[in-house]
Amino acid sequence: MIARIWRASATADNAARYREHFTSAVLPELRTVDGFLDAVLLERDRGTDVEIQVITRWSSLDVIGSFAGADVTAANVAPDAVAVLTEFDSTVTHHTVTAESN
């Protein structure tokens, strides 16, 4: 299993807008991809802004390629998301899940 991790930040108001984008647009799209397992949206209040972290889990790196394209390290950030974020990573990291609790 592979965890794909991406980071961004937004103002408090726009973090709520990103959360809506994530639940109404990103998750439905991800659920159509065979091999997508689950996703978590994390937020951390930093006083002046909100740090956002998205962790998706996939059955394999090959499956991620079917979603992300040839460069699996490139972040897929939709224009609607770009519009509400103050900054975001243009790349993602991938980690092999070696243990988990059930």
Rank of each mutant, 00 (worst) to 15 (best):
H21W: 14
E43Q: 15
P28G: 11
A10R: 06
D34S: 15
F36W: 10
Y18C: 06
A15D: 02
D38K: 00
V26A: 07
V26T: 15
E29I: 08
V33W: 09
A12G: 07
Y18A: 00
R19W: 07
T11G: 15
G35P: 14
L37M: 14
T23Q: 15
R17T: 14
D13N: 12
L42S: 12
I5E: 08
D13R: 11
I5L: 06
E29D: 12
R17K: 14
R17S: 10
T23V: 07
A12C: 05
V26L: 06
E43C: 07
R7F: 09
A39M: 07
S24R: 02
T23W: 12
D13L: 09
V26C: 02
E43L: 10
R19T: 15
D13I: 10
E29Q: 11
E29G: 10
R17E: 11
R19H: 13
A16R: 13
E29A: 11
R31V: 04
A15E: 09
L42E: 09
F22H: 06
D38F: 01
H21P: 05
A25T: 14
D38N: 15
A8H: 05
I5D: 02
S24V: 01
S9W: 03
H21R: 05
V40W: 10
G35W: 13
E20W: 09
T23N: 14
A8R: 05
V33T: 12
T11D: 08
A25C: 00
N14Y: 00
R17C: 04
A12W: 04
L27E: 04
F36L: 13
A10I: 00
R7T: 11
A8V: 00
F36K: 01
R7M: 04
G35L: 09
G35Y: 08
S24N: 05
V40G: 02
L30H: 03
E43W: 08
L42I: 08
F22Q: 09
A8P: 12
E43G: 00
L27M: 11
V33K: 10
E20H: 04
V26M: 05
I5P: 03
V33E: 14
D34L: 07
A12I: 12
F22S: 01
D34Y: 06
T11Q: 06
N14Q: 01
F22G: 06
I5G: 06
T23S: 14
T32W: 00
R19Y: 02
I5M: 07
T23I: 11
G35T: 03
L27H: 01
V26S: 10
D38L: 00
D34P: 15
D13M: 06
L30V: 08
P28R: 04
T32C: 03
W6D: 04
R17F: 04
L27R: 02
D13A: 12
R7P: 05
W6K: 03
R17G: 02
R44I: 02
A16C: 08
Y18H: 10
L37T: 08
